[in-house]
Write a protein that binds this DNA or RNA. Structure first.
Lengths: 218, 218
DNA sequence: ACTTAATTCGAACGAACGTTCGAATGAGCC
DNA sequence: GGCTCATTCGAACGTTCGTTCGAATTAAGT
């Protein structure tokens, strides 16, 4: 009783942006950023709402003004991260037409975003199926789009160069190489995104480009 | 008080094996197997001791007769899995001398064990740093040995063929390709270990073997 | 200054967590 | 039968979990 207009307690207020975004959105973004760090450290299940409260400097109850459950919070983080990377990729690909170069752009885009937002990407990679059905399916569609883009780039290369290999395995191997980085990359020791992208790009593209001749070994 | 001879309540009884292993060891192995399935489904933090109790058909309290904490249980699973894979690899490598073939054996060994024990390997890959300092360091040493073997194989190849590339990035990329499989492999749709090993072996080895000429692109 | 709505919080809820304890079983040997 | 361990369990421990509620506080518009 007394609840204004929607069924849930969390009301997204509509109010003209003071320019970039509403106060609500800005505060939410801050909380998401802190929560990302905590999820990265402790994992989704391992991080408690009290941990998130401490990290973001807001009371436990206060958090629930911004999202209605811990699961929805994880969803918001994953959706935002993935949407951003897809959107950046699309804009970067716009000018490029050479098939090999387009794949290098894909790799560079992925790695640059990955290393610049390592915590978010770890959460994305590591907590890939922590979400239940409702949230999971919405995220899966964004993921599928990203996957399809990569398949498209590879099929393009195969066609132009007359290659033959399993696109699926190649794409998933490439994702594996790139996403595994969160388990080992140390910014103080390891190369930066551009160098890694070159190295992995060479490895992957040479591996894929020498498939004109049918298997020579074994 | 009344505790027999050791400080902890969990006593590993010594009693001659009725042939293969003691009753204790056999029962423990059963529990580890069931626990592996549950950890695979729900993750380490997400799986409760009550889940494990249900899955293994033993009472909650009964489990603690076999290991003293949930963390130690995870450790036992990971240690057993990793030790087995290293040991199998060593015996498989014994007869082989060709550098390229040795790397193919490495890949095949990894993938065969990976697909045959997918749950265990998912737990191994996914819960890589769920363990605290004490357990973590013992596991890290097994992990490091495995990593070093692969570095050795690659350095061998580099020397024999006069190649130049970052061994570290190549090895970690290879691990990425292989370990990422747990996120996508569907036994009903995807190829078996031998075919996957061939495909990934081709991709990786061709990628690595064409590094005699210094970088041609970009 | 007053009103209204947006934002924050302390305190508590019931449920589930990992773990412990003492008593009840079971099996193997005299 | 009785004795001795190994094994299993029900019941509870104290703690922490995600979430809720009503009141307090702050910011915005007049």
């Amino acid at each position: 009783m007394g609840s204004p207009s929607t069924a849930t307690r969390v009301i997204r207020p509509r109010q003209r942006a003071p320019e970039p975004a509403t106060r609500f959105d800005r505060r939410l973004a801050e909380i998401l950023a802190h929560a990302t760090d905590v999820f990265c450290d402790k994992g989704y299940e391992g991080a408690s709402m009290r941990d998130l409260s401490r990290a973001s400097g807001m009371s436990l109850a206060g958090l629930y003004y911004y999202f209605e459950s811990k699961e929805r919070l994880l969803f918001l983080i994953q959706k935002h991260t993935f949407s951003t990377i897809v959107q950046r990729l699309k804009s970067r690909l716009e000018g490029i037409s050479d098939a090999e170069e387009r794949i290098r752009v894909f790799i560079l885009n992925h790695l640059e975003y990955f290393l610049a937002n390592q915590q978010a990407m770890k959460v994305l990679s590591h907590e890939a199926d922590a979400l239940k059905n409702g949230f999971a399916s919405e995220l899966a569609s964004i993921k599928r789009e990203y996957y399809r883009i990569c398949v498209g780039l590879l099929d393009e290369l195969k066609q132009v160069r007359g290659l033959e290999f399993s696109t699926r395995i190649a794409v998933l191997s490439l994702f594996g190489m790139m996403n595994w980085i969160y388990t080992w990359h140390n910014p103080r020791v390891d190369a930066d995104a551009k160098e890694l992208a070159n190295e992995m790009g060479d490895l992957f593209l040479h591996g894929v480009l020498t498939r004109e001749v049918r298997r020579e070994a074994r």
